[in-house]
Design a protein around this nucleic acid. Structure first.
Lengths: 129, 129
DNA sequence: TCATCATATCATTAAGCGATGATACGATGA
DNA sequence: TCATCGTATCATCGCTTAATGATATGATGA
């Protein structure tokens, strides 16, 4: 069977991986590994701006990667499926082997860029408070 | 430990997932599941253009997802690690559950777009030959 | 009701990145 | 050596999309 005939199917996989292909979203998912958190807490932990965090959460939520639950004026987010963790761990395993090469891969500037969130690195911002 | 302190680490994961977040590259990886193939064969199977295929192969190769081996004037590509297959299968599992939502997710136009490779869909192009 | 807090939305901007077409490279056989 | 085949490279273009700042929405308590 020609792969071509099923190329449409890759759209979904591509979307899933695209959702996971952003440092900020990965940081959010990681933050949620230990359990549900309200948005404000996610903002603190990740160092992302409030609107940026909210945008990413909407993205993750619409894609079914996280789920939301309102409690009072807080909205708690949690990982929607345990397999998301599994996927992330498997990626870690793979990275243990090919990580060095991926690091050297210049096709995607995403991870090599100087951090553009707010000003300076998250660590720097943390120090400034 | 604040996730923030390790945010740099997500760069690698992000890159890995970004490498997997493209329909064309997924099609190429799928094509290589059954064993090594020369570039020309990949071009046929996926319906991608030659230069486009070559570009993606370079990307995948530099990131360590596929490996290349020259044989005569052909260059055979293969999956570099079995865990790549595992990762793709796990993604399939996850998609079985959240696939519908991801399909409805409009944050990424990538997979919903009308196919812009060459003219028309790959299937249409195949029929034209 | 009003002020405030927590979160969401939106327009804008700048950069990322995939596809293409032309061209270069390198191996092979005549 | 020359023509050809298989593959790689490169510049260019247009769409995609992450981040920001301002603003809106909605819940809560005084």
């Amino acid at each position: 069977m020609l792969v071509m005939d099923r190329i449409e199917a890759y759209g979904l996989q591509a979307k899933l991986f695209r959702g996971l292909s952003d440092e900020s979203r990965l940081a959010i998912l990681e933050a949620l590994r230990d359990g549900p958190l309200p948005v404000g807490r996610i903002v603190e932990v990740t160092g992302l701006s409030q609107s940026n965090t909210s945008n990413h959460l909407r993205c993750l939520s619409e894609c079914g990667l996280v789920s939301a639950e309102q409690q009072g004026r807080f909205v708690y987010y949690r990982l929607a499926d345990t397999r998301i963790e599994t996927l992330l761990r498997l990626a870690d395993d793979l990275l243990a082997e090919v990580g060095r090469r991926i690091y050297a891969c210049t096709n995607y500037r995403g991870s090599t860029k100087t951090d553009t969130r707010a000003t300076g690195t998250p660590a720097q911002r943390q120090g400034r408070r």
